[in-house]
Design a protein around this nucleic acid. Structure first.
Lengths: 263, 263
DNA sequence: CTGGAAGTATTATATTGTAATACTATATAT
DNA sequence: ATATATAGTATTACAATATAATACTTCCAG
């Protein structure tokens, strides 16, 4: 390993993790050769590392096609994560109540560097697969919860984030203009919530509100997303916002140091 | 590394993974010393490996207490798992419909060696935290879905499993007698479903049915769990079973080689 | 203020992972 | 069918890398 020339850095471990990270929405199942290609590691290293990951139960290997794919262990790690995150345990009951009360999809997100990550998802209507499973990471500036959390930050941090944090197009209507985004975040500052439509998915309308800590800053948020075909922003604010606020208030976030955003 | 003296085995990677696996429901956050203690690795190795995991974003480190805990990356891995598992995408819409229709909690499990693992959970009522998040692994013989899946296996495999697979006590009522379990599995063979109460959680009643592949064997199952205070087994069978069966039938499991059970 | 425990840093050493290469099996084309 | 290519698997000599011992630093508790 040439980078991180540090005696406290174990290159082999880092390379193994790199192999895990090659898998994603599109790379669902990979052959050794594909693993080599996507990881940038050489054939020998990939062979040994992938084999180790397989023996250790981190990768399943199809005995006939010889292709590797994520194992159940990946799910188990998430289970452990949920236990380690005090917020999830705190929030879960309220979120269930909320989703039952509204009959609409409810989500819990956390700030993860300059992204948000979905921690808990309670889908009530058929949607996008991506919108039904936890663990998705999205650019904070492109999401209602990201903007709602950012709105709780001091002026200077907020401005810096608006100027530098990443944005990505998901639909033809995804907001890409940072001046517009500034306006939306500032609106969230005064309103206490952020609302948006068609940002991630077409015909989706979402409203997000921050879960503030004792210092007034939010590192997590609750969101409700509904179909734009059946709802209007006005109705969302009138009918959903109050319940959402009750829920957010019922969750007292454990005070913790904010987390970095890797992987 | 003394074990696995194989040139295709990278010990450092395995040790790093071992460190990850030290975290669980109870070991939520660990100091370096605790990591040493639980992993069995020496101080130097633990130091280097934990540091690497931290630098690679797999472990968060509290800058003040210096303690390590699972990072958001653990959730992201689960997200990738969900994409890699064709069953999840296939089943999700039907499961959402089912949970909405019943107004009760619905779960999707897969066989993972001699355990089952919860892949998707759609909680509709407040419960145990453990019953609301995916990734939990339980001894197959102790669960309705495990028994329902096992019931689709040929006689000899079924018997072998009943005699050898692990069992664990969760409540004072958890069935521990393998002869009783045999009876329950055989009932599932003729009924096509398994039902049980108070096995994992007190006052919980659950019914599970297999999702059979083209060969007649099931490696996944759908389950519905309700409160024993409001339901009787009879009512569960009368009112829930038909919908559950429709759901299971609507899910055609992708034919795949069954998976091992590691971690 | 002192002692001890926990975290961090350094270094000489050889164990471990490496990369090159050879082997085998499977698939595709002629 | 046979040849050719492509992918997966196995082996080995070598040295780079991870190691373990040790020393340093920091932070509490007594």
């Amino acid at each position: 390993m040439k980078t991180k020339q540090n005696t406290l850095f174990v290159g082999s471990l880092a390379k193994g993790l790199k192999l895990l990270r090659v898998f994603n929405e599109t790379n669902i199942e990979l052959s050794l050769a594909e693993l080599v290609h996507h990881s940038g590691l050489d054939k020998s290293a990939t062979q040994r590392l992938a084999n180790t990951l397989h023996l250790e139960g981190m990768l399943d290997k199809d005995p006939v096609t010889k292709r590797f794919r994520p194992s159940h262990a990946w799910l188990q790690l998430a289970y452990t994560y949920f236990w380690s995150d005090p917020l999830t345990g705190q929030a879960m009951p309220s979120l269930i109540d909320l989703s039952q009360k509204l009959g609409e999809s409810v989500n819990l997100t956390e700030l993860s560097g300059d992204h948000i990550i979905y921690v808990a998802r309670l889908p009530c209507k058929r949607t996008n697969f991506a919108a039904t499973v936890p663990g998705r990471r999205l650019p904070a500036l492109s999401t209602t919860t990201g903007r709602a959390m950012l709105a709780t930050f001091p002026e200077d941090e907020r401005q810096h984030a608006i100027e530098t944090w990443p944005i990505k197009r998901f639909t033809p209507y995804t907001e890409l203009d940072r001046r517009e985004i500034r306006g939306l975040v500032e609106a969230a500052v005064s309103d206490g919530y952020a609302i948006a439509g068609n940002q991630m998915i077409l015909n989706e309308l979402a409203i997000g509100i921050p879960i503030k800590g004792s210092d007034g800053r939010a590192y997590s948020a609750v969101q409700c997303s509904v179909s734009a075909l059946q709802w209007t922003p006005e109705r969302l604010i009138a009918e959903v916002l109050p319940a959402l606020q009750d829920t957010a208030n019922s969750i007292s976030p454990p005070s913790r140091v904010p987390l970095g955003g890797h992987l």
